[in-house]
Design a protein around this nucleic acid. Structure first.
Lengths: 218, 218
DNA sequence: AGGATCGCTGTGAGATCGCTGAGAGCCTGT
DNA sequence: ACAGGCTCTCAGCGATCTCACAGCGATCCT
């Protein structure tokens, strides 16, 4: 599990990093709010442990910025302020949990686990046309609810077509987006793979537009 | 928002009911664990505030019973026990938050709001697939209730896959979240560890998706 | 009608991918 | 210092996938 630790007190960072790494977490850290926010935005973390009092940008601001960008990564705030309103403020800014320093490592760990339990796994939309269904997340394709095994290239081709239903797609466009554009592949390869797809799907789904390319019936 | 309050101290019940009702909650209450569990099962609540020390059935038992029935209603536990292990225990039994008495009403309210905000779908405390079970709290894994010894890396890999059942997980993603991405590990290491897991679990659980990565059968 | 173009498909060679056994390096505890 | 466990690399193998090629039929144009 990738964890981001935003905290400026270096001794605490070292101690937590040691403990959390030992408990199986990959720990990255930032020592100020701006760097922390930047990392949280692009770092693909499973959770963030965030100090409130930070140089450059406070923990409150970091979590509020994240939430305003629809980033729902679980956030656990840390603070030396024990006041009840500080705690309520932190939570109301969008944090999911709040711990007051000094805290026990065991409690931090248990609270992190509770947060990770609730982490949502939003599924990408399932693409479909007729009775063909393609799920980019599970990488599964079914025809009339019967699973069909596709090779990576076949899958990529079908996915590309499914994302542009009804539109005519040229072979060059397919070579660019499904194949490696730079690889200099013979356009006939597209024809070959359309043939594979037609056979596997067993449906008149991919229509040939002579002289132009292919079109998938919506 | 419908709220269930399970608490045997009647003065506290009255005070909380008054406050929460004023803040827009519909409050039902129960004075012992058995009644509380029964109400939580059938009452369709948005959240449950649950005391630990209750007549007839403890709060720990109530939350564990709910979770074992796949009831993921958000639970906030209250307890007079301030020990760090009490708190960790409560959370690891499946509670989502834990407050120690005496607590501030403002904090309770903020934590309730944070709880209601969080993703509605939680996952069980113990991750499982087929007859494989993995407990992140105790870091133990069983196959058909027989304990299996996993190394830390094997454990991390299995945990990550179990948290994304059915999803295709690429080797790069695994290197990022289970290994330390910065360490520059050869992707073949993932293949090696998948091999170890398959051998130790002795189940066709982790499926290879050629060209993409791996998928764990739910 | 006849030629030219286009797309389809069977064949097969080469490339790619994933799995595995062996073993080196490292750390930990004795 | 030594043994044992863990992590990871490496190289070889087998299976699968990709793609070029060439022949054929369909379609289009004049």
């Amino acid at each position: 599990m990738r964890l981001l630790l935003v905290e400026d007190e270096q001794r605490l960072v070292r101690a937590l990093r040691r403990g959390l790494t030992g408990d199986g977490f990959i720990v990255e850290s930032a020592a100020d709010g701006v760097t922390g926010l930047d990392l949280a935005r692009h770092g693909d973390f499973d959770a963030v442990v965030l100090d409130v009092m930070l140089p450059r940008l406070s923990g409150y601001d970091v979590v509020r910025a994240l939430r305003s960008e629809e980033n729902w990564v679980p956030v656990l705030m840390l603070s030396a302020r024990a006041g009840e309103h500080d705690q309520a403020d932190g939570l109301d800014h969008g944090a999911d949990d709040y711990l007051t320093k000094p805290f026990s490592y065991v409690v931090l760990l248990a609270r992190l686990r509770a947060l990770l339990r609730r982490s949502p796994q939003a599924r990408p939309v399932v693409l479909s046309a007729g009775d063909i269904r393609l799920d980019p997340g599970t990488r599964r394709v079914t025809v009339d609810d019967v699973p069909v095994a596709l090779t990576p290239r076949e899958f990529g081709l079908l996915e590309y077509l499914l994302r542009r239903p009804g539109r005519v797609v040229t072979k060059v466009e397919l070579l660019d987006h499904v194949w490696d554009a730079a690889a200099g592949v013979n356009p006939n390869a597209v024809e070959v793979y359309v043939g594979y797809l037609r056979r596997k799907l067993d449906r008149p789904l991919v229509e040939t537009v002579r002289g132009m390319g292919y079109r998938l019936e919506p």
